[in-house]
Design a protein around this nucleic acid. Structure first.
Lengths: 338, 338
DNA sequence: CCCTGGCACTCTGTGCGTACGAGTGCCAGC
DNA sequence: GCTGGCACTCGTACGCACAGAGTGCCAGGG
């Protein structure tokens, strides 16, 4: 176990390094923090911290920089979550309140997060797996062509064209629309398949083919939309990465382009509470020198999706965590209102 | 007017510089191209080209690199559009054919363009100004709450919640839905306002408020959706920019995040034919060291939107133009089919 | 037992002078 | 109008020395 003062030294190192972006030495530490001991003592403490793997030297006779393990300890034990100032809170609220639809909410959230944290922001669209059906609409475009529109309780709309095997009358259409809705409205996506399973049987034989087609497309639509989408922003903040960024930035940009990678990244985060993954804790190789701060958000107490930021391991954890948490909270409110 | 050989020298310089990314000297030129003259002669030609502003030296006694004006001449007079190989064509077709809806088409197009050109791809969603209404749907969610769904002929769907000033019966709803559709289906967005102008008058006075509300939200929706959206991809290709990229990449990333800037950029492109804007020809300052290759695409002969790529001025123009043109053509086909 | 001051050692970054090489510009000759 | 030759310019690479920052270790004191 590390003594109180050694932890204090680690905290000071992290804070200074995050601020200056340069390895921090014993002398500078004692000057900038009231540790109450001499540089020599700090040197001894640093030696111990290095043995334990919390800090490292880029090369002999340079200052120390925190390792991933050091940041981990810092986040877990040494740093709180820095709450936002009230002007900041007001700004968030004002900015988000202007949103007109779901796309807009997500878009604004991304920009907001990117601006507040000065890092790359990632916001997942509210998940449809936990969503329910608000309405299913069927429109006749041509005698044997329908349009299927699915509306979810999170305000998302999906549509598909349906080519019918046989012409489908307006009466049958109204009938199908009514029965379909009476069965699935308010239900969860996952429950829909069994709820509509026997629907074709109750139709005239000539319409059964079409009904089946419509249902299969509806189910396909549900499955496909369960694949979650997300929006990212603030990539220009990657240029803040540091001096050696040409080599760092490439894999990060590549990872950010792969929605799959990002979804997995957010998926790895805990469902409740804030998750911080530091450096090599991230499964994806290209993100080994970044940290991800993620948190779930939702309209009720249940998280329907996640959002977060990606930045250099050398980031202001308390501030970032504060911003992420606050934004998630407000977005939840906005979603609940609409 | 420049002699034939001088133009040939310029072409050789551009080609070599694009390939090697290094200033090219007279000796290297004669070795790599069959110009049929000695380095000394080339030097004289280069001096002329420099006087005319087509090439420049980064510093005395270095090779020459093309200026924006040089690239312009190259694109206008010296380079054709390099057609894609047939495997490439097949790959494009296969890749785009798998698309399921409009979002998917645009998404695939962006990825395709980015991959083919190894540059940043920008694809504008089909514009709604020239679009027509395919269907308007009204759904009753609660006694005084409706959902308005607008479907366009390009397959786009927009929805809005409507809070009614007074409860609105199912009969009135069906009535409004029918009348609305009979008036606007198949019409262009721009024509809709006058077509529905007198609609409230034909309703009972108790319903007029609601009808007006619905109409105003519909119009608002039309206007808002006329603001065009776009998708970008391949930002990791920015890392190919060159050695001095830390300073270059920042403003480009920033510009790419501003949809407004990009829309203006594409908007500046000619409506028909391919547009190439080189370096300082771009109005936006951050893009002064990039070139933009853009072209319109559409389901018919009329362009409904534009797509293109953004890359360093030092890019392979013939190849890039070929890829952009081919992709635009195929996307047009796909849109026409659906 | 822990802290402190001192000291030797090890790096890195920087400035400087030199040598080298690539490339140009110009000129005289064909 | 093209060519070969030659002097000149610069930017880059290299070697070297030096200052500065930082460490590790040790002996002494509370």
């Amino acid at each position: 176990m590390l003594s109180e003062r050694r932890l204090e030294v680690l905290r000071a190192i992290v804070q200074d390094y995050v601020g200056t972006e340069e390895p921090v030495g014993s002398k500078a530490l004692t000057e900038r923090h009231k540790l109450g001991v001499s540089p020599a003592t700090v040197r001894n403490d640093m030696a111990v911290l290095e043995d334990e793997g919390f800090i490292a030297q880029p090369h002999t006779s340079a200052g120390r920089i925190p390792t991933d393990k050091g940041y981990r300890l810092f986040v877990d034990k040494l740093a709180g979550v820095k709450p936002l100032s009230s002007p900041e809170r007001r700004a968030i609220q004002n900015f988000l309140d202007g949103a007109v639809d779901l796309d807009d909410v997500v878009g604004r959230t991304v920009r907001l997060l990117a601006q507040l944290t000065r890092q790359v922001a990632v916001v997942q669209y509210p998940s449809l797996t936990r969503s329910t059906v608000r309405h299913v609409e069927l429109l006749s475009l041509a005698p044997a062509r329908l349009m299927l529109v699915l509306i979810t309780d999170t305000g998302r709309v999906e549509q598909r064209l349906v080519d019918c095997p046989a012409p489908f009358g307006e009466t049958s259409l109204a009938d199908l629309r009514a029965r379909l809705n009476s069965r699935v409205v308010g239900r969860r996506f996952a429950d829909v398949p069994q709820l509509v399973q026997d629907l074709p049987e109750s139709f005239e034989s000539e319409d059964r083919g079409t009904v089946s087609t419509v249902l299969s497309i509806l189910l396909e639509c549900l499955v496909e939309e369960t694949e979650e989408r997300l929006m990212i922003g603030g990539t220009s903040n990657l240029t803040r990465f540091g001096h050696d960024f040409p080599v760092m930035i490439r894999p990060v940009l590549e990872a950010l382009e792969e929605q799959v990678v990002l979804l997995k990244l957010l998926g790895e985060a805990k469902d409740s509470g804030m998750t911080v993954r530091i450096g090599h804790e991230n499964a994806h190789e290209g993100l080994n020198s970044t940290s991800v701060v993620a948190v779930g958000y939702g309209s009720g107490d249940e998280a329907v999706a996640k959002l977060g930021v990606v930045g250099p391991t050398r980031m202001d954890y308390p501030g970032t965590m504060g911003a992420v948490r606050a934004v998630a909270r407000y977005v939840g409110q906005i979603l609940a209102e609409s």
